[in-house]
Design a protein around this nucleic acid. Structure first.
Lengths: 158, 158
DNA sequence: TCTGAAAGTTTTCATCC
DNA sequence: GGATGAAAACTTTCAGA
């Protein structure tokens, strides 16, 4: 969990891994100019430090025809510490919550739900938001087209 | 690209792969009750059909201290087909755009930006939205805490 | 479509630079 | 830190059911 200083090779590798984590160590090494074992040592550092948390398969939502994505914009009544904890825990536990951000600005939370059918969507939104007395109001924006659904973050300014 | 019918084992495997794509075929096979080669054949089907688009390394934004996430809510002036195409292309080309959804409801687009520092954030938002005469208005919600940042979708109702 | 074994690669590790 | 090469593990293929 240490602070981990990154050199150019690290930035390069992290960029490549965020695009495609299925490449071999040799393949990555050839692109950045390192041996497979040197690449492995670096990748291990990312993992043990917590920077690289896990690797996942990304499904194309367009191929899962019944899947409904929706963005919920949530406003909290009064953000007491206890309620905040409970609300956040509920967001973390629900498998339908794909992303959840605590934000500043016109709303307090942005929550992306991935459900199977609009009925299911409604059910979950009710459970998470409507039944919570500390949720002042929430709006649902149904996703018509998921143009882009990545999770890559920059590790330095481009 | 065919429609691909999924049985219980497929749903199970896709669920596991979306959580952790670094598990071995043997490991996955033991959990679902198949041999490694049987698992491989199924995973290949997901890939060739386009359902499984790629696998990526997920970085923890909390470990990239300068990274700023922001949710932009965008309202379009008048959605002419030509402008829509241009606007969407810009969203697809900018590396700072992590996610972009076309939505129905109070806004037209929801765009998540991942940038390095607030200055960079502002710069990108200006370029993508402020300079576009067809963008009526946009609001930026800065992410205070990325509670959850996955990309898993359900392949069937839980 | 599955299993199980053989063949081909990749990952891992010890060692030296 | 990095390179190399050998051992271990994994992936991939294929024959047989």
């Amino acid at each position: 969990m240490a602070a981990l200083t990154l050199d150019d090779l690290d930035h390069h590798l992290l960029d490549l891994l965020q695009r495609d984590a299925s490449r071999t160590l040799r393949d990555l090494g050839e692109e950045v100019g390192l041996s497979p074992s040197a690449v492995l040592r670096r990748v291990r550092r990312y993992r043990t430090s917590g920077l690289l948390s896990h690797t996942v398969a990304v499904l194309d939502p367009r191929h899962a025809p019944e899947v409904v994505l929706a963005v919920c914009l949530v406003t909290i009544q009064e953000d007491s510490p206890e309620h905040g904890r409970l609300f956040r825990r509920r967001l973390l536990e629900a498998p339908e919550v794909q992303q959840a951000y605590e934000v500043s600005g016109d709303y307090d939370y942005v929550v992306v739900l991935a459900t199977v059918g609009t009925g299911h969507q409604n059910e979950i939104a009710k459970r998470l938001f409507q039944q919570d007395p500390n949720v002042k109001r929430y709006t649902t924006l149904f996703v018509l087209d998921p143009l882009r659904t990545g999770s890559a973050i920059p590790t330095r300014r481009p």
